[in-house]
């Protein structure tokens, strides 16, 4: 096999990793969400904002005490039952991040998760891209080395 093939596949994969994706620009705005936390979910479970937005989350625990830890931003807020607590931050990191309850709130507590979506999920787009390139590369390669086996 000529080195051209693996080289070009590697180059394509590299491109899928590093090619800059231009975030859809939007005017930053103030966004306020009231999120109810109960065993074992947030409502709404998914929050979407634009990059650069000033985000305020009012967390209201409705049954027992719950918290919210925002992965990627490494911020946390905690709410006692019936009380509301709030956190405000600038959503300056692009991507989808998990929200996790950070106080033991019952059996399924470690799996109490939500999500904040800041702009597009570029990690997923890139992962899809690399996966597709890899799969196609294998298929093409298979055709080159064993055409009789691969084609029908």
């Amino acid at each position: 096999m000529k080195p051209f093939f693996p080289l070009s596949v590697g180059l394509l994969a590299l491109l899928a990793i590093i090619v800059p994706i231009q975030p859809i620009s939007s005017v930053p705005s103030k966004r306020v969400f009231t999120v109810e936390a109960s065993q074992y979910a947030y409502s709404p479970g998914v929050i979407s904002v634009n990059p650069g937005d000033m985000v305020t989350i009012n967390l209201v625990a409705t049954d027992v005490a719950h918290g919210m830890y925002i992965e990627g931003y490494e911020l946390a807020v905690f709410s006692d039952p019936g009380q509301s607590a709030s956190i405000t931050f600038v959503a300056d990191k692009n991507g989808h991040f998990r929200l996790r309850c950070n106080v033991s709130c019952g059996a399924m507590h470690p799996f109490m998760v939500g999500e904040i979506q800041v702009g597009q999920n570029y990690l997923l787009v890139r992962a899809f891209g690399i996966a597709t390139i890899a799969a196609i590369a294998f298929i093409v390669y298979q055709h080159k080395i064993r055409p009789q086996n691969a084609s029908e």
Binding site: A127, I130, A131, A134, A135, F138, I139, Y141, Q142, H143, R146, N149, A150, S151, E152
Partner: peptide, 25 residues
Amino acid sequence: VLVAGLVWSAFVAQKTADRSKVPAW
């Protein structure tokens, strides 16, 4: 990890295609 899993499985699919007579693609 997921990309590695896919690549690894594609590799295995190629290896097994001869015996299984199922095209790897």
